[in-house]
Computed example of a mutant assay.
Amino acid sequence: MERVSIFMIYCALFGLVFVNFAAAQTVHTVGDNMGWRIPTSASVSYSNWASGKTFMVGDILVFNFMTNEHDVVQVPKASYDDCSDDNAIGNIITTGPANITLDMAGERYYICSIGRHCEAGQKLNITVVSSSTGGPTPPVTTPPPATPTTPQPDACAPTPDAETPRPGGAPPPTGQSGRIPPPPPPNSASVSLTTSFFFVIASAALAFIF
């Protein structure tokens, strides 16, 4: 069951890619209803047909013609100007209709090599562009410089206590705060002397009793 699910996912992805690729292609029928033949007048020339159209890599040219009555061959510009099939690019296609996929960007030149068909106007020149050049490049946005921030005072920093007034309105001593200092600890020597005195008195009292 798991393999079937994975296979179905792959099929769905392949179908999506194929649909997107097909949607990106444009099929151009050369000459539209006239097809690929000798133009009847200059107003229906293939240069007029190609003007205003955009040919992109991946698009398809369809040359509609009767087999053995016409053909189509790609040639370099010099051969195109001379209506010659010298230095032909690829094989001459003699079976119609012919579908040609535009596989790279650049100038493309096509002629019919039969008789004097090319001299009579059965020739096509197009410019193929890459799909990557289809849209303008978005401008690069530079972020504004960061604004320096002023350090704020620490809210937890200790603040000096207000001076405590002394009795009688006397100012506190220089270099000291207004706090009343705690009383000094008792003198250890006085404590020892007092303890000894009481010990002697207690000893004398006990001696007198007994």
Rank of each mutant, 00 (worst) to 15 (best):
Y10N: 11
P185I: 08
V27M: 05
P153D: 12
T141I: 15
M34A: 11
G178W: 03
N87S: 05
V140S: 07
S51L: 08
A157E: 14
T94A: 03
Q122E: 14
T40R: 15
P138N: 04
P182F: 08
M1H: 06
F208S: 06
M1Q: 09
A162S: 14
T141G: 00
C83V: 00
V57Q: 04
T174L: 12
V30M: 05
P145M: 04
L124D: 03
I126Q: 03
A120R: 14
G135S: 11
S43N: 14
T137L: 02
L206E: 09
P153R: 10
I126Y: 00
P97A: 02
P158A: 13
S113W: 01
A155P: 12
A22K: 10
R108F: 00
P183K: 09
S203F: 10
G96N: 05
T164S: 04
D85K: 02
G106N: 06
G115M: 15
T29P: 02
Y10I: 15
C112W: 01
L16P: 01
L16C: 11
N20L: 12
T54V: 08
M8V: 07
V75I: 15
Q176M: 08
P136E: 13
S45F: 10
V44M: 12
M56G: 03
T164I: 07
A98W: 01
S130F: 02
P171D: 07
F7A: 09
Y109E: 00
G121Y: 11
S203L: 15
N187D: 14
N64A: 11
T194K: 10
M1A: 12
T133L: 12
D82K: 13
S188N: 10
V30H: 03
S41I: 13
F63R: 00
F7Q: 09
A23M: 12
K123M: 09
S196T: 04
A146M: 14
T26L: 04
I114E: 12
S192D: 04
P183N: 12
I93K: 06
T142D: 07
F18V: 09
R37N: 09
A88P: 05
A88G: 02
I180H: 01
K77A: 11
S41A: 13
A105D: 08
I100Y: 09
R3I: 11
R179I: 02
V75C: 08
G134V: 10
L193R: 13
A105W: 00
V19S: 08
